[in-house]
Amino acid sequence: MIASLSPFALELGWGTTMAIKTLVVLAIIPAGALILGYVFLLKIMSHMQSRLGPMDPGGFHGWYQLVGDGLKFLQKEDVMPAKADRRVFAAAPAVVVLSTFLVFAVIPMGPDLVVKNLDVGVFYALAVSSLSVIGVLMAGWASANKFALLGALRAAAQLIAYELPLLLAVVGVVIQAGTMSLQGIVFSQQNGEIFGWDFIGNPFILTQFVGFALFLVAAQAELTQTPFDMPVAESELVSGYMVEYTGFRFLFFFIGEFGTAFGFAALAATLFLGGWSIPGVDGDWANILGPFVLFAKLMLVAFLMFWVRFTYPRLREDQLQALAWKFLIPIGFANILVTGALKVAF
């Protein structure tokens, strides 16, 4: 397959294109984690809770703090508990990071800017994002620590319980778009119309707002962010499954968490807010502006998610499970049936 980006008249082979795309994805994940960590964790969270956050490192509002924090991990001693299952313990962070990486393979940033526009796009993205459960269970089990195991079990139960509302929320979008390819979903929002009025297309947030709300709540739980942070509850479990990890292995969990937050925000922006498309921009300009448009929409979604994170107290384990099974999943089913019926009726 030849990638064509006509303003630059580039004609590259499969290998070269793939190499460039891989490098871009490699750069996006730590960069995305840093941006979310800096903007939301260090700055907006601090301001919402009436404090300044770090101000000194790097000069301008302490922008260097997070980079410094990351580099610090590089020179930390690698401590592996004597009782740990060494190989599994070492592999667990890699599994978590891997699941984050693979999500970015299908997220389109422009008409031609996507690593691979798989036919089963959304399905693939949700499937690989749930791989992280395996990494979490591996970490908790291999640590041979009671707190880690408790945290891992809580995390696994939570991740699988909220996996379902996430899937069900997406089905509504898939029904409306008639395709699972993320690129196809963006196009159907771009070319859609609302009662014959097609100036802004049909961003699915308007017709699938139930799905959008479900998706955000479920994504919040998948990211183990407050109010769904039972698995890493610092005050009881001292970070749950990560408790025995030090140095760079610990950092991988951090990158995994914020990288996945970036990925889920991008997915939500693509599925419900029209992704890279913006009214009135087409063709080559869409390729150039697309990444910026997607980034703006993504930050908007991420702001919502982090706003909730900084505002609400933690749910109890049984409340957390009850919310998923008794409310979100039945609502998700009802949403699918209503969307299907309306799709057939109109």
């Binding site: 994805v25 990486f101 760079f248």
Partner: peptide, 23 residues
Amino acid sequence: VLIGAALLMVGAMLGAGRLIRPT
């Protein structure tokens, strides 16, 4: 290819850490 790249990155970062960190 992406799986390979991700594993390579994890390996490279841990390798760099091994050179720098104290034991």
